[in-house]
């Protein structure tokens, strides 16, 4: 038991690693604060373009969405980070991560928004347009508010995935939580920093998972 504690929850090491873990946690939060809004905005654009009148544009969007849903995000990130310099574009880690996340999560968010918009019937559009609202106003004030409410569990679920996914930024040496934990582990030869990092992810994300679980059961019950 004592060896287990020494190896996995060594207080001395945890205390020593705490500042850099905290720093990593801060970077993870900053990363989320950037990539989640960027992904949501990108997803909204994807969804609006997917509903465009031009058939050609709609097919391009289907291609875009399927392409990035088929592409592992880590591969995308590595392609951008290690490949771009060969094309003469030097890209800092943070920018590479944000770009990879924009491409990846805008596809997922885009599909969710699209499903939400499609769940709103023609009658709502007719009603709004008959009162003189423009197409844009109808979308913004009538369709989207209802659409977002309908797909809220999916939006939260995808946000959970995006937050978890920020851990892959450690692979390109962005100093977020997992990266810092692995640094601390390799310096101390002790697993405690990784265990603490895992606990920090749990503290951050467990409430979201619980909320999601409740929302999912509610929607199913309402069917």
């Amino acid at each position: 038991m004592q060896t287990l504690i020494d190896n996995f929850f060594n207080l001395e090491i945890v205390v020593a690693a705490w500042p850099i873990l905290l720093q990593g946690f801060g970077m993870t939060l900053l990363l989320c604060a950037v990539v989640v809004p960027v992904g949501l905005a990108g997803g909204l654009v994807v969804a609006l373009l997917s509903g465009a009148r031009s058939r050609c544009l709609r097919w391009i969007m289907v291609g875009y969405v399927d392409f990035f849903r088929a592409f592992p995000p880590l591969v995308l990130l590595i392609f951008i980070y290690f490949g771009f310099p060969f094309a003469g574009i030097d890209i800092p880690e943070f920018a590479a991560v944000v770009l990879a996340f924009l491409l990846n999560s805008s596809s997922y968010y885009g599909e969710i928004f699209r499903a939400g918009i499609e769940s709103i019937g023609r009658a709502q559009i007719d009603a709004a347009r008959s009162t003189g609202l423009t197409a844009g106003q109808t979308m913004r004030h009538v369709i989207l508010p209802q659409a977002i409410r309908n797909v809220l569990p999916d939006l939260i679920g995808n946000t959970l995935e995006v937050v978890k996914l920020t851990s892959i930024a450690s692979v390109v040496a962005l100093q977020e939580l997992l990266y810092m934990a692995r640094q601390a582990q390799s310096v101390t030869y002790n697993a405690s920093p990784i265990v603490v990092a895992a606990l920090m992810y749990l503290v951050l994300l467990w409430p979201l998972v619980r909320l999601l679980s409740r929302l999912e059961h509610k929607t199913l019950a309402g069917r």
């Binding site: 892959i168 997992l178 265990v195 749990l202 979201l208 998972v209």
Partner: peptide
């Protein structure tokens, strides 16, 4: 559901050997 898969992989691969 809450833990990032990469964190789990790293726990299993780098941390479990200590146990």
């Amino acid at each position: 559901r809450a833990l990032p898969p990469l964190v789990i992989i790293i726990l299993f691969y780098f941390a479990l050997p200590s146990a």
